[in-house]
Every structure is written in C-alpha cells, then in structure tokens.
Design a protein around this nucleic acid. Sequence first.
DNA 1: TCTACTTTCGTGTCCGTACACGGAAGTGTA
DNA 2: TACACTTCCGTGTACGGACACGAAAGTAGA
Lengths: 340, 340
Amino acid sequence: MKANVSIGTVDRVIHNRGEVSKATYDKILNIIEELEYKPNLMASTLASKRTLSFAVLVPEPTSTEAYWNKPMIGIRKAFLEVQHYGVNINIHLFKQSDSQTFGKEADLILDSNPEGVVLAPFFSRESIEFIGELKKRNIPYVFIDSNISDSEKLSYIGQDSFQSGTLAAKLLDYSIPQNASVLILHFAKERDNMNHLVQREKGFYEYFNLTYGISTRKLITIEIEDPTSLESQEKIRDILISHPDIKGIFVTNSQVYYLGRILEYYGISGIRVIGHDLIRENIDFLKRGIVDFLICQRPEEQGYQAIQSLFEHLILKRKIQSENFTSIDIVTKENIEYYK
Amino acid sequence: MKANVSIGTVDRVIHNRGEVSKATYDKILNIIEELEYKPNLMASTLASKRTLSFAVLVPEPTSTEAYWNKPMIGIRKAFLEVQHYGVNINIHLFKQSDSQTFGKEADLILDSNPEGVVLAPFFSRESIEFIGELKKRNIPYVFIDSNISDSEKLSYIGQDSFQSGTLAAKLLDYSIPQNASVLILHFAKERDNMNHLVQREKGFYEYFNLTYGISTRKLITIEIEDPTSLESQEKIRDILISHPDIKGIFVTNSQVYYLGRILEYYGISGIRVIGHDLIRENIDFLKRGIVDFLICQRPEEQGYQAIQSLFEHLILKRKIQSENFTSIDIVTKENIEYYK
DNA sequence: TCTACTTTCGTGTCCGTACACGGAAGTGTA
DNA sequence: TACACTTCCGTGTACGGACACGAAAGTAGA
C-alpha cells in the first residue's frame, strides 16, 4: 500500500501548498510524475465540494441584437461545460457611455472575491486600477476583445486589429479598378476604446504603403460625428458625387449599416463596401449586396475561450497561452450562412 | 427518503433501457424531469467504470504535412477532453488509392464492436455496406469531410462544397477586370470522392450565371491528369500565353501548388489565383503572393466536432444536429497567421 | 525531565451514482 | 398445494480522492 500512502501525503501537501517550501513542493511533484500518478478528475471534483466562481465584466448590450450579446453566447456555452466542475459564473455589465458603472461593477466583483475574472478593459484608467487590485489578491484575469499589453494577464483573447485593417485594404484593393480611389469612413461615436480603430486604420494604410509605395492610390479619410444627422448624410453623398473615382469605401467600426442606408437612400451603387462585425443590420445589407464584405472576429468563440482559459488554468492546471488571437474572418453573402 | 427510492428505480430502469417499453421509459423521464432530478455526471462516471470506445476511419495521411493530419489534431484534442469519461478512441486508416484497405479496416472496426464510429465515407459502395452493418448493430456513426445524404447518420460534419465554389467565383470575379477571362483547372488525380469537386464547380458556374446571365465572362475549363508531367505544365503555359485575357485561375482541389510551381517556373504573373486548403505547399505560395486566396474548411474543428458529437450523444444524451456545416474561410497572406 | 503547545501523519467518512447481490414476490407447472 | 424458476426491488459496497479529526511525534520553555 505504499502508493496509497504516498498519494495521501501528496494530497495533503499540495492542499496545504502555502505552508510548504517551493523546493519541497517541486520535489513532491517530481515523485508524483515518476509514479505516473494522475489524479482522477471525476473523483476529485466529486469529493471536494468547493465551488469556484468566475466574474465577467463586459459592456451591456445596447439591444438584443447588439454585439455584446455574442460573447455572452460563448460564455454560456462554456458555462454549461464547466458547471459540473463546480464553477459558477457571475456576469457584471457596465455602460459603454459611463466609466463610473465600470468602476462600480469592478468593486462589486472585488467584494465577491472570485477565483477568476474575465473583463473587457474598455476604460483604460479604471481597468488598470481594477487589475492592480486583482494582482494584489492573486486572482487571475483574462482580457477579452481588447488588450492591455504590459499587464500580467493570464491571457488575452481577441483580434489583431492591425492585421484586420491590412486584410480589409487588400480586399478593397483587389475589388476596385487600378485607378479608383478609396474612402475611409470613421463613424466616431464610440469615442472610448478607440485603440482598435486606430490599429485597424494603421493596418489599412500600411497595406497600401507596402504594396504601392506612398500614394499611388488615392485614399480619402473623413470622420462623421453623428451618422444619423441629415447633415452628415448629405456630406457623404456630396463627397461621393464630387469624387466619382471613389469605388471603394472602408468603414472602420461596426456601423457600416449607416453607410448602407445612405447609399440606398440616395440610390448610389457601383461602389465596393467593406465593414466590420456580424450584427444584424450589417448582415441585412450584406445579403442585399450593398455591403460586399464584413471583416469579423468571432465573439462567441472569444467568450467561450475566455472561460475555458480560466477553467484550464485553475482546475486542469494547464499552461495558458498569454495571447490568443482569434481568426479574422471574411464574410460575404456567399458564406455568411456558415458563420452562425 | 422518497426521492432516493425514485432515483434508485429510475437508475435501474434506464440502465436496463432495452427491457422497457418506449412508453414506460418516456413516462419515467417525465417523472425525473418533474422531480428536477439531474444525475451528477461526475459521480456517475466515477461509479460506472464502463469504458466506451469510439472508432475512427479516415484516410491515411500521405505525408506528415498532408491534409488528413489535421482532423487528427482535432480528434486528439477532443480525446483529451473526453478521456476522463472513460472514452477510448481507436484510429483506423485506409489508403485513398485502395478501397480494399477501407473494407479491411471497416471489418476490424466491426470486430472491435465500438460504441460509436467516425468515418470519412470516401468509397461509396464500401461505405454503404459498412454503415448498413453499423445500423444493424445500432452503433451511431458520424460522417466527416463528405456525406452520404440519405443515410441514418448521427451527424455530418463538413463543408458545403457548392457554396465554397460560389464564394471562390465571387472573389475571383471581384479581383479581376470586367473583361478578363477565368481559367478553371482540374487536377484530376484524386479520382475518388469527386463529389466535392463537382459541387464546387457547380457552385462556381452558378455564381457567374446568376450574376451576369450566361456567358458574359468567358470561363475556360481544362483538366490535367498528371500535373507533374512536363507535358501538362507546358499545356498550361501555352493556354495562358495564347489567352492573355485570362486574369484569374480557379483550382478546384487542394493542389493549387502545382499551378504555383508552373507560374513561378515560367515567370508568369499578373494573374489572380484561388485554391483550396491550408496545406503546407499552398501556404508557401500564398505567403509569397503567387496564390491570392485559399478557400478552407476547418479540418481540425471537424475532427473535434465529430468526436464531440458522439460523446454528447452517448454520454450527455443530447440532441445532435444531423448536418453541421463548418465555416468556409477565406485565407489570404494577411490573415493566415490566425488560421493555425 | 515534565508540561504545554505545535506540527505531522494516518484513519475514517463522505461525495452521488452504479451495480452486484440476495431476499421477496410473482409465475407457471405437476 | 408444493416446488422450481423468473422477475422485482431494496440494500450495501465500491469508485478515487478530499478533508476533518485525532493520535503521535516534535519543539520549546521552565
């Protein structure tokens, strides 16, 4: 019964991890490995009735069709898989328009003292403060959607915005004649969390610089504060009319549907349009051929992976990749059915 | 202790499922539901030491970089997740060039009498015979990669080839001038399992028919038996030289790298090239800009989902979707890093 | 060396279900 | 009615590890 004794010992030592020196702990782990002893996950979770709780801090979806519903779907799926292991998930939502709500929810999370946190670090200052406290308490956290690079995160799960910009540029470049111009459109309402958009734009320009050297193709950039105003709509129309050489439009954020409405309303056609994100309004214009391409991340997968990362780290004790870029999908009318 | 008694009863009845009428079984399930009794998955798998075995029947990878290594990666990943539940997986490989090896391995699988099967129904006749026997024995089976539509499969996991053809057509159509022609290239070595390729081609033509009506754009189709022969290579070169209006080439199977070699060797450029599948040779030409687009399925994900489907069906008793199309990805130099 | 206190270590119970087992009840036959 | 045989059903043990508990050993101070 030697094995039994060893296991018993190991069990307790690991359990009292904090009271044992690093060296001793490592030695014991070696012994375990030599004995090829692998604890039975089922028995282990059955016996220990400890429950873990994960907290999620993401923006409140602004409607039932809004972007932030999607990560939630993935989070839910992950939850269904890990709940058997005694994992609970608490969702905390903040308003994108109000950084105070972020701070308030962050405090609530700290009060509940979870074993792991998933957050979208939307507001830089508040996020840094929050993860500082998490670090102090040794609570692992995973970034989703956007990143704070020099932090001790467990993992970042999201997109490489720069590359997504480069990709958009290539598609547009391929899709229009050699001598045509390109319009870059910022619908700059979501002022916060702009890092994404800046990176995308950089990537977009970079493509043309690398491909043609500077300024063979004419790129026109405009910024629209409020895409719903008549003024803005007419501004866009006027530019397109006065620049008939514009054959491609790149909308830097997810609101390409505003452009779709304008193009449709004024009956402007023959322009390739590329936008971002599979939200319902965009899908509509994509299917009707007014928008040609949507560059997408995989928000469900991001949500799923975020929870999985915490789970694998805390329960399975696996190594987690600290940067986890999800794929940059090109969605068209032809393949949209297979992107949920 | 009423609950205990009920549970004990239910336990045995479900266990002896075969000996109970459908009506009784359903009634009992209702009772369970009313009592909101959910068996504890952990305790259940711990107590029952029964092990399930799944068999996998797929083509042998022809090299370490070949396509069929990829589903294996997904299968392995799924295995790591489900092995705790007592699931074993046996891999059986057949030669794509020899339908007898398929039959032989199928027989071996039947001998081992597994609880579930994943197969690529590469050879129609042999596959139908095999699944006939599986059906007789009530062993659920999942198709991967290609489908046999009027069979009682648990699920099909793979691509919609027709749509992938349509998508390729769109990309090529967008990428070349209005008056340019398109070359469709069949490297017709893999004679079996051609259904995929036929569907792709159909989809490809369909796009142009729908978009332009018949024959506005000139489409030229040729078939190359042996892409490695000098003769074939010169044939392709001659066509491209004698048809300078060809500005786009569509290769229907995964062997676009043969075309890449020819284009490179003869120094032909200025043509958009689109092919299929993320195999190493193709990736090479994609990165160097000789191939512009690769249309891909997600072979790892297919392997993963195939095992997961069996697992969810047999252990979690979940409903499984009988058709499960994986996404049709467009991969370019710009986003390839994020497709593994 | 003795007492009081701390740390180490082995034992026993429990987690929630599966399944074997054996007694009880039911079925059929002489 | 008695006997043999099948089906039904409740009970007990096992699965493998977690953790509480208490005994044993170790440590320190008087």
